[in-house]
Amino acid sequence: MSANQTQEENHTPTGNAKPLIRLEKVRKHFPIHKGFFNRKVGEVQAVTDIDLNIYAGETLGVVGESGCGKSTLGRSILQLLRPTSGHVFLDDVDLTTLNNSQLRPLRRDMQIVFQNPYSSLDPRMTIGDTVAEPLKVHNLHRGAALTQRVAELLDMVGLPRDAVRRYPHEFSGGQRQRVGIARAIALNPRFIVADEPVSALDVSIQAQILNLMDDLKKEFNLTYMFIAHNLSVVEYISDRVAVMYLGKIVEVAPAASLYKTPLHPYTKALLSSIPIPDPTVDLSQRVLLQGDLPSPSNPPSGCRFHTRCPYVIEKCRQEVPEGIEYLPGHTAYCHLVPEINNLPTSPA
């Protein structure tokens, strides 16, 4: 374990020194095939060399531009996508070494809430069948006990019990997402990946779903990886936040620290883009990034952000920055953090 991971453990939000989920150099690259013989001509580097801890009882928010690898990272943790290399640990179990039959009992501990409530539910299945399906697959309940458990789950997420006989098209987007949440918690999981669970919903409904997820977290001691674009939503629900750019993590910090004192230039630009409902605010102080996001099939050398960074120096083009904890629990991957933020060169 690296010194950076050891320092991170000293500032865990839940006081747990041992992570529930631990990632070591996780990569997920997708091959690119072309030509008559379908030869491999390259690869999309969706996720590259991710080291990350997620502690029991916390909500880790993951933010970044579209295509930065957030969803791929979440699915790689759950082994819905098998990592190209690296290791994913649930407690002390390396999930990447297990085959599908060995993974099956562990999937009860890891579930996912999908982004789109309109496509994540089978339109041919009733709500009752949808919520009951994981219970049947894992042979947990049958008969009257199954019916009772489904009714309890619907109560937990605020849906009427007569929903068991109805179909997804009869419900609104917010209600469908409640069904998705009920399905995710049916097996009493310990860890849930919430893949942009409110991005397709109206603002008022977003607040209801976020409050529901927070209540369920407290009631069942759940651990969330919450993926989102909306930085205000992430600030509201997260204990810690990881910022991703082009397949790599560039900053990890407690939510309060990251939003008050962002250290990485990319994080500064992201937070600067949050709309402020005040016409008197001087918009000229906003950080505007130049250029387009590079292709993940041909990422820049060195620091991947250097092609758009206003502070770039030659070292940024040549060397990949290491993660250094500059503030308590606050790690950034940038060569110029002390100079940009007027911090001492020695870490926290």
Rank of each mutant, 00 (worst) to 15 (best):
A269S: 15
S204G: 10
L283N: 08
I185R: 03
S284A: 09
Q290I: 05
G291M: 01
A200D: 05
V252C: 07
Y224M: 06
A182C: 09
M225T: 07
S199H: 10
I249E: 09
L263T: 11
H264M: 03
V198G: 02
D282W: 00
R286V: 11
L270F: 10
P265W: 06
A194P: 02
F226N: 01
I192S: 07
N211E: 14
P197M: 04
I181C: 04
A253W: 14
K248A: 06
T267L: 13
D239L: 07
L246V: 05
E251M: 12
A256G: 12
I205N: 03
S273K: 13
S273N: 11
Q208P: 14
R240S: 02
V193A: 03
K260H: 13
D202Q: 14
M225G: 00
I237F: 01
L258T: 12
A228M: 03
P189C: 08
D214N: 14
V179H: 01
M225R: 01
M225L: 13
Q285S: 15
P189I: 08
S272R: 04
T267Q: 12
R286D: 07
P197N: 04
I209D: 12
D292H: 13
L246A: 08
M213Y: 09
V243E: 05
H264W: 06
F220R: 13
I192T: 00
H264I: 06
N211W: 04
Y245R: 07
P279T: 10
Q285Y: 04
D292E: 15
L201Y: 10
K217D: 11
D215V: 11
